[in-house]
Design a protein around this nucleic acid. Structure first.
Lengths: 141, 141
DNA sequence: ATAAACTCTTGACCATAGTCTAGAGTCAAG
DNA sequence: CTTGACTCTAGACTATGGTCAAGAGTTTAT
């Protein structure tokens, strides 16, 4: 009973596809695991934790590159909590910005929606008219 | 004085790159324009309005395929304002969902951020620990 | 012993929204 | 009339996060 998993077992255990696991390895998010004589990957049990880390960080909006950065920090003896905190704050800023952009879009769309009674042909649809409107007049040189 | 523009003039007028204009044509967002004898595209002036439409709808979060759908509705005599309104409402729903997802991410990240004092090495960083935590215990079969 | 299930590598492919390159042809200004 | 700016096509390349297929080898179950 060695404490290792085949890629298939690891995939099932973590709900991450075999292809994704190999993809993460290529991208440097997972270390290259030991191999059996037949060249099969055999993963130590804690690789599952690493995959959990990846999936959770992904849900929080980190890209694979950013996740790699976080995991590298984790194993860098010279890295500080402040480094991790800085990346977290960076991400918070990103997300706030996205929320603001989406809120503006939402307001614009709701205004369009309210302007249209929803009856008749598209010929004079205020939504389409608003999108087609030429506001290039706003900036004369 | 024909009322047409070369692709370069159109690009400058609309701030859309020449490559993007040709790309939109390939994707069916712009009709194939007339050509000169030398096979140069010559655009009627109102193509600029169509490009404005595309860019505005894009800012509102519509994908190119969705924008194509909207523009097709615009010229379909059987399409109704209700069709446009339905797509707008669909988009509003999408955007609300995205905002909710991002808001949840934000809350999670802010909680992580607050849990870390930002001093010392990463060894016991609560942010990294939270990401690494195994919550698979929540679901025993 | 043999078939099913698993794994390996390499490389192509998906969507999205473009950008860039090469090589050829065209147009305008000096 | 030549040089520089513009345009043409086809196809490759970017980033992101994977998925899929082919063809070969391995392991497991019956």
């Amino acid at each position: 009973m060695q404490q290792t998993l085949t890629i298939g077992k690891l995939a099932k255990k973590t709900n991450v596809s075999i292809d994704s696991i190999r993809f993460y390895e290529r991208r440097g998010l997972l270390a290259e695991p030991m191999r059996t004589e037949a060249n099969y990957r055999c993963y130590p049990l804690d690789t599952a934790a690493r995959l959990r880390f990846i999936k959770k960080a992904q849900k929080l909006g980190f890209s694979l590159d950013e996740i790699k950065g976080l995991m590298d920090l984790q194993h860098d003896p010279d890295a500080t909590k402040a480094d991790v905190k800085a990346q977290t704050k960076e991400k918070i800023k990103d997300i706030l910005e996205k929320i603001q952009d989406l809120t503006r879009m939402l307001a614009a769309l709701e205004k369009l929606d309210a302007s249209c009674d929803g009856h008749g042909p598209t010929a004079e649809c205020p939504i389409l008219e608003a999108l087609a409107a030429d506001d290039s007049q706003g900036c004369h040189h």
